[in-house]
Design a protein around this nucleic acid. Structure first.
Lengths: 195, 195
DNA sequence: AGTGTAAATTGACACGATGTCAAATATGGC
DNA sequence: GCCATATTTGACATCGTGTCAATTTACACT
């Protein structure tokens, strides 16, 4: 509990984070994480029961360090439904590249590991809740298109700003982050709002 | 070459196809494919050198049987840029659920297998070429929004109709196929065209 | 000092999946 | 009956995850 060891658990987490980010989330094995943290492979299992739990803990760690919650909550400072939506999209889309590595690793495990799937779905539910709030603000404003109900609008916004779409555009198609963000704001406006 | 054996290779391909579709692409092992085809695991390796190549051959087989090329080409029968875009989206989006299983398996291997990655990228390039044709037609029509250049419009359309987005909406969010297709058409129109 | 406790190391091993290999064993054509 | 080809059988290498037990290191307390 005291500072005897310089927090091995945290060293593992930051090590995993580093490797995940530099490798784009690909091919990071338990042995790699251990080496990065200056530990034996088995020592990692002393702190995290499985690779899935290590990845999940790593995302939580990053979320805490980078304060996603706070950054997304700040959007409520923006005045007006449309301004809030833009702020939300900017905040989330700026966050994606910072966590892309872990997301990739977690997503890759989604098919084979129930825990990883649940953790990912949780994360996505939280994002969807943010989208729902944005849509509510648009509706309160009268800026939400009349032929869209709230659920549908939420799902569409949530789909637009998905990590996969970020990968598609910035990764596969080489878009810059600014260009990507601008496109997302534009698409969200055109799809959800009039004009 | 003759019809001595009822085409073992094809039996493997259809077996793989069946398993991939019913399992959503998850957890289909070489041994499963072999059992499905009524063969020993090793016999499968007599016909396909690796799992990646089996998956690739399976996608090609499905593409041939279902005639994607033809279905996408038919869109050119539609008159006018917008009608062609709608036909293209409908054709492609109707195809996704039919190949979703193989796509999932191939996508899952993308990170770990260079061959699988190349095969997938090839497929996506072909889709992008279709999107580019649609965008050219829109532009010829004057229906493409003025502030979008062709490349950007192509990338956006290609992103909208990605397999991942189909999974997001129909899988995670439970949208029906019709609702999904309608949404894609609507989004493409609002993003790429005026009004 | 000495003892106890927690953290970490070492090395071995089981498991599941892919992929390889060699030696049998059908099967059908001539 | 003989040959070629397809298939089977069973063994094995490899890689990554996860488990286990015995040992060592290091610090904390009295």
């Amino acid at each position: 509990m005291s500072s005897a060891q310089p927090d091995t658990r945290e060293r593992i987490l930051t090590g995993a984070w580093t490797l995940l980010e530099e490798g784009g989330g690909r091919g990071v094995r338990m042995a790699d994480v251990a080496r990065q943290a200056g530990l034996s492979r088995q020592a990692v299992y002393l702190h995290f029961p499985s690779r899935a739990e290590l990845l999940i803990a790593t995302t939580r760690y990053i979320d805490a360090v980078k304060d996603v919650e706070g950054r997304l909550a700040e959007c409520r400072a923006a005045v007006g439904g449309f301004a809030r939506m833009e702020a939300f999209i900017r905040a989330w889309c700026a966050y994606i590249p910072e966590v892309h590595g872990v997301c990739g690793a977690l997503l890759a495990m989604r098919d084979s590991d129930a825990e990883a799937a649940a953790a990912w779905d949780d994360r996505m539910d939280a994002l969807r809740e943010g989208c729902a709030a944005v849509v509510r603000d648009l509706a309160a404003d009268g800026s939400l298109r009349a032929d869209l109900d709230g659920e549908a609008a939420t799902d569409l916004l949530w789909t637009l700003v998905s990590v996969r779409n970020w990968e598609h555009l910035t990764g596969d198609r080489g878009w810059s982050q600014e260009r990507y963000v601008a496109a997302m704001v534009m698409m969200a406006r055109r799809v959800l709002c009039d004009l």
